[in-house]
Design a binder for these strands. Sequence first.
DNA 1: ACCGTTGGCTAAGTGGCTTAGCTTTAAAGC
DNA 2: GCTTTAAAGCTAAGCCACTTAGCCAACGGT
Lengths: 191, 191
Amino acid sequence: MPRVGLNQQTVVREAARLADEVGFQQLTLAALASRLGVALPSLYKHVRGADALAQKLAALATAELATAMTTAAVGRSGGDALRALADAYRGYALRHPGRYPATQRVPDPADPEHVEAGERAVGAVFAVLRGYGLTGDDAVDATRALRSALHGFVTLEAAGGFGLPRDVDRSYHQLVASMDISFRCWPGTGG
Amino acid sequence: MPRVGLNQQTVVREAARLADEVGFQQLTLAALASRLGVALPSLYKHVRGADALAQKLAALATAELATAMTTAAVGRSGGDALRALADAYRGYALRHPGRYPATQRVPDPADPEHVEAGERAVGAVFAVLRGYGLTGDDAVDATRALRSALHGFVTLEAAGGFGLPRDVDRSYHQLVASMDISFRCWPGTGG
DNA sequence: ACCGTTGGCTAAGTGGCTTAGCTTTAAAGC
DNA sequence: GCTTTAAAGCTAAGCCACTTAGCCAACGGT
């Protein structure tokens, strides 16, 4: 019987593709194995199990999201950078509905790539906020605020939580514009 | 064999309690049945299945959350009402870590109580925003923004997504303060 | 050509959810 | 008070997910 020739990377990448098609919750080892043309237990030669696969997928998605945010914001500053980063964030979530939820997993300290990806993501946000003159505790608070707003919006949108007919794109732009205002006159005590 | 005397309400309420103890994802029919002192299939006399139970739990939690927000905001206006509502929101999520995720389920049109609870929740937010003079499309956008911010923060906090040592309570208050600023000079086109 | 590593397999067990069908309780009616 | 009946409980059995154990064959290096 000829070998398929899998390795961890192939498995994780296919898992990401499958998750985008069927949803993160519906990503199952059985479906993944069948997609890859192997029997289910064969996957255990490449990943420790379902949870480890989810963690590796999280590392991949976080790295992709961090890259998207970074490249969007580079060369811009202030509200310009904020809008670019926010659009990149939501764009990634819309393009990759299965990977995006994985990015919410807290980085595994035992996976250096995952940790590094998480740091890059936070770093991208930090860099944008520095353009508003926010540093120290203010920057931490503002980062949490921005992450909350973007993640919350994207999650509610994906869940179909916005019932009213009002255009969702416009609501998002208003949200980002309101964050821009907040950052320009941040209510913090300073540093 | 004596009967335990369950009904749908007892089952759902116990499910809510159990979810708060073990987590929404770990809420299982087997654990619930054992907690109630019946065999697993007996639960099917009261709920259609696992998904229906989750929906009923969502209706319960949404109603509780709506009540918490409404009673917090009543008699207040402007930033005062906003802070009260926001504190009630996060307070509920922290006190009921298993029920809170259930509130994100989109109301089931076939369950009038669920629909009504969802409307009350949105209505509470709308009422607060009216105090800022926000109506029409602006109110819709602002509602989405506020829900996104609160839900995002609470979700990230529950997931342990805030790594840095900065006090989380303070970050939340800063977030609410920044939303207050945003609502006072809302960037919308009006109307 | 051989041999060891490794990637594939089947078999089997656990723990979820669900359905089918039976029994017995407890309440309603006579 | 007895009978009848709807409902609340049960056991048994099946499905599907994940996981482990252990076997076999393909491929790479010598």
